[in-house]
C-alpha cells in the first residue's frame, strides 16, 4: 500500500468540465481539463482574464464543484462532495493565498493566522503555538498583535501566507499573490513562495504574468477553458497521468 500511495499524485484531475448557464447560453469555463500535480511540485497556471483560470482555481481550491469529470485530491475523489465536506477539505488540505490578502481587518495578525485552526477545532493553547510558529516562518514574530491596517502590503501578504501555512496543508494555492503589491515587495513575496517550495510545500500559482510564472518549476497555460502545458505540450501532460 505504501508504494501505491507514493505513486498517487497529490492532485489528479481528469476530463474536468465546468459549465455556467448565462441567460440561456451555456458557457464552458473549463473544457475537459486534465492535470496532475505531484507532491513538492511548483506549478504555475497562466492565462488571460476570462480564460477560465479563476474557475480552475476555484475547483482546485474546492470552492466550487465541477459539472463533470474527476478530481482526486490527496487520494480522495472530491468533485462530488457536499458543501460541509468541501469546507473540511479546504480547511485541512489547502492553504489559500489571495491577491487581495483577504485578511479579516478586525483581527490581529495572530488571530487571522489562528482562524483556520479554530475551524479545525484545535484547542486554544496548541492553536496559539502553531500560529506563532507559522508567523515565525514568514518572519513576522515581532508583529503578531498588529492589525492588518498597521502592516505594509508585503507584511499583510506574509500574514496571509502564515495563515495558509498554519494548518500545514499539503497544497498552497496562490491566486495572483503579487497582484496587489509593488514590484519590489512582489519579488520578495515570490522569493518567499519559492523558498517554501524548496522546503517541500506543493504550490499552485495562478497568474496572468508570464514573468512570475517563469519562476515556477512547471507552467500550464489555460485558454478558453483548455489547458496546455508550456513547452511540454498536451502529450506530456497525459503521460504523467
Amino acid at each position: 500500500m505504501t508504494t501505491l500511495a507514493k505513486v498517487e499524485p497529490l492532485i489528479r484531475i481528469k476530463e474536468l468540465s465546468k459549465q455556467y448557464r448565462m441567460g440561456g447560453e451555456t458557457l464552458n469555463a473549463l473544457d475537459k481539463v486534465s492535470l496532475t500535480v505531484e507532491k513538492g511540485d511548483f506549478l504555475a497556471i497562466i492565462g488571460p482574464s476570462g480564460s477560465g483560470k479563476s474557475t480552475l482555481m476555484n475547483v482546485i481550491g474546492c470552492l466550487d464543484a465541477p459539472t463533470s469529470g474527476e478530481y482526486w485530491l490527496d487520494g480522495a475523489e472530491v468533485s462530488r462532495l457536499k458543501e460541509n465536506k468541501l469546507a473540511d477539505i479546504r480547511n485541512q488540505k489547502i492553504g489559500f493565498i489571495f491577491q487581495g490578502f483577504n485578511l479579516l481587518t478586525k483581527l490581529t495578525a495572530i488571530e487571522n493566522v489562528e482562524l483556520p485552526l479554530i475551524y479545525r477545532g484545535i484547542p486554544a493553547k496548541q492553536r496559539k503555538q502553531q500560529a506563532i510558529e507559522a508567523l515565525k516562518k514568514v518572519g513576522l514574530e515581532e508583529r503578531i498583535h498588529h492589525r492588518p491596517v498597521e502592516l505594509s502590503g508585503g507584511q499583510q501578504q506574509r500574514v496571509a501566507i502564515a495563515r495558509a501555512l498554519a494548518g500545514n496543508p499539503p497544497i498552497l494555492l496562490a491566486d495572483e499573490p503579487t497582484g496587489a503589491l509593488d514590484t519590489k515587495t512582489g519579488k520578495e513575496v515570490m522569493g518567499f513562495i519559492k523558498e517554501l517550495n524548496a522546503l517541500g510545500h506543493t504550490i499552485i500559482l495562478i497568474t496572468h504574468d508570464i514573468e512570475i510564472s517563469h519562476q515556477a518549476k512547471r507552467v500550464v497555460k489555460i485558454m478558453d477553458g483548455k489547458l496546455n502545458e508550456e513547452g511540454g505540450g498536451q502529450d506530456e501532460l497525459h503521460t504523467s497521468i
Binding site: 481550491g61 470552492l63 458543501e83 460541509n84 469546507a87 473540511d88 479546504r90 480547511n91 485541512q92 489559500f96 483577504n102 485578511l103 479579516l104 482562524l115 483556520p116 475551524y119 479545525r120 495563515r163 494548518g167
Partner: peptide, 16 residues
Amino acid sequence: TREIGIRKAIGAKKRD
C-alpha cells in the same frame, strides 16, 4: 459578505 467568504474559504462550515 467578504468576511464570510474568507471564513468559508479557510474552512468555516455552514454551521460555523
